[in-house]
Design a protein around this nucleic acid. Structure first.
Lengths: 225, 225
DNA sequence: AGGGGTATAGGGGTTTCCCCGATATTCAGT
DNA sequence: ACTGAATATCGGGGAAACCCCTATACCCCT
């Protein structure tokens, strides 16, 4: 079944992170057909992604941007800080330079559009394996450079919140209850409540529906889900 | 390479429509591994999809909702009018009943979430081949029914709710607590809670943040307030 | 060394959530 | 006119969430 003609090197390990199972299945099918590559895990949310990276130590994480719980950019930031050896290939629908700049700023080494051709996926992966960076061909690197040098990473209005607070806010707005959030983050319910209270103070919003509306305004969550 | 053990019947023809090349490539890889199925074409926009249907006469069109130019629902409506023999399987990220109802109303025979398991894809396709309809398991058919039987073509759904329920929903989404709502309407807190529970059943949404997101989707409240 | 910001957590009282059942009204169908 | 479904109104009760307080540990910064 497997081609794998020149099997001397051990396969590169890939972790697949995307919140759509069917898309993961599709990507997995594609990657399984590429020699020298092994998908060592997959998951659909950011927290699990971090746990899987710790366990599996993949060479490359193929990371979607929009994820429940903890978005892809936050995952990237965390990984690039705590697992600098793991290389990150962002998979996104957005070609806007501000998105790309934010991803690179968060520590990604590659940026690929979901509308990319299949060959670009292979190209991107091999670039990352070889230690090079990769930008999707459809993206203008110079424009991105300007965004990066302009220190434009602060696009979101939710910058007033700490990463933890933003994460809690996102989970609340997604409809997760304190119990679920606490167990997902391995902290006590009380801690979750404390974070909620603190971010409420930050925002001056003192009810849950208001938090949800705010999260939608700043793009932390998407009402269409 | 191909399995295709019992090759008596000619393979079912599938047309793939999605605006993301990589996703198409992935789906193609998945479908190519299923016996008795042949992908006879793919494209990334609605107009080309119509042209391809005319040329290839597929059995089933696997149709993403968000497409450039002409969205998936418009494509579905056109196909079901001009090519009623071609069956339509919608592939969507949205699980909200109002989305499902709109898709079915546009003439789709199947509705699948991008977060569905791989097995559901096979199940859905075979259902359509056999002339049956298919709804993703994660979707509550009864709730969708209510949306369908209500004046469905009116985009601003929420018509499924009684005026009272709509009023309560709006107040909740504005951040008013049950007590405030009750006193404002001169009813007991228990009544307000009952209304909330009833409208939750209607919508198939069982948490407050989800209600808020729904209210925003249908324009009942405005996130910018 | 101290101070501010952050993340963690418990105590305890209030409120909401969400299950159960109950009653009255209205409106449609036979 | 009667039946039945849908709607609107309430209550009990327990689990959960909310929201006030305090408290620790850590890190960064001056």
């Amino acid at each position: 079944m497997q081609k794998h003609q020149y099997s001397s090197e051990k396969p590169r390990q890939i972790l697949l992170v995307d919140d759509h199972r069917l898309l993961r299945a599709g990507m997995r099918a594609l990657l399984d057909d590429m020699p020298g590559i092994a998908v060592v895990g997959e998951c659909g949310d950011g927290l699990e992604a971090l746990a899987l990276v710790r366990r599996k130590r993949p060479d490359v994480v193929l990371l979607d941007v929009s994820l429940p719980g903890m978005n892809g950019l936050e995952v990237a930031a965390h990984l690039s800080q705590h697992h600098p050896d793991v290389r990150i290939l962002i998979l996104s629908m957005h070609s806007g330079p501000e998105y790309v700049a934010r991803a690179l700023n968060a520590g990604a080494q590659g940026y690929l559009l979901k509308d990319s051709a299949f060959d670009e996926l292979a190209e991107a992966l091999h670039a990352l394996f070889a230690g090079r960076d990769y930008l999707c061909a459809a993206i203008d690197g110079e424009v991105v450079e300007r965004f990066l040098s302009a220190g434009t990473d602060s696009i979101s209005a939710a910058e007033v919140l700490t990463p933890r607070q933003r994460q809690i806010l996102q989970l609340i707005a997604e409809g997760r209850g304190p119990r679920e959030i606490a167990s997902g983050l391995n902290v006590s319910v009380k801690t979750v409540e404390a974070h909620r209270a603190q971010l409420m103070d930050r925002l001056g919003i003192y009810n849950v529906p208001g938090l949800v509306r705010f999260a939608i305004r700043v793009g932390l969550v998407n009402p269409e889900t």
